[in-house]
Amino acid sequence: MKKRFQNITNKLFSLAGIGLLLLVWQLMCSFGIIADYLLPSPLKVAKAFAKSFGELMQHAKTSLLESFFGLTIGLILACVLAVAMDRFNIIHRMVYPLLVISQAVPVVAIAPLLVLWGGYGIAPKVVLIIIVCFFPIVIGLLDGLRSADKDQINLLRAMGANRWQIFWHIKLPGALPSFFPGFKVSVSFSIVGAVIAEWLGGNSGLGVYMTRVRKSYSYDKMFAVIFLVVAISLILVWLAGLLEKLCMPWKNKKRT
């Protein structure tokens, strides 16, 4: 009971922080401390959001679709690679440096190339999202698979278990706790990745819309998109957290 009360007050404090920031921002705009055309007030942004709601949703649909495909394909590829790297040391030695190097290449630099190769359609966006989502998942999962308990593995070996059974009963479930943090990072990257990819061209998507309103100096609408992207990202990460709890029911169940 006391713990629950503490949880609620903790949440109240976080919300109060955000509320305070918005209030200060609004007041600075209202009193003319910041020029309206440079930074629109939160109220104006909210109005713009309401006005262009239909349009925003239409664009959000495109971006979410790209994120979904990019994340799903990235997830599958990452899992296959992580399992292969764990199973075969040669693959690990060959691929690991490449992975690290690939992360050092700035995404913004490859994005125009992807557009050049893949056109203005959905393909280059999905590819870019795959690239950004891939790494955190591989690293998390690989780390989890490699840190499997040696004694547990020996116990199963002594019981006559084969490699597949050891993977299924020990390695995979044991890797989940280190897989999910990476996965959550990838989920939030996926929507941001979609927006970045869309900046470079296309017919719809939040990034495309963002470029359009920026060019027409509608900064209130611009902020409306930013807030929408943040909201989508938060919701997706929250959903990933729910999935995490569902996949690991043994966590949070300690002896009382």
Binding site: D151, L155, R157, A158, M159, G160, H169, G174, M248
Partner: peptide
């Protein structure tokens, strides 16, 4: 030959996720 005699250790080695 594995799979014939198993052993139990000081650590119970119960799998936490099962």
């Amino acid at each position: 030959k594995t799979g014939i005699i198993s052993y139990m250790q000081q650590k119970d080695l119960l799998l936490p996720h099962k």
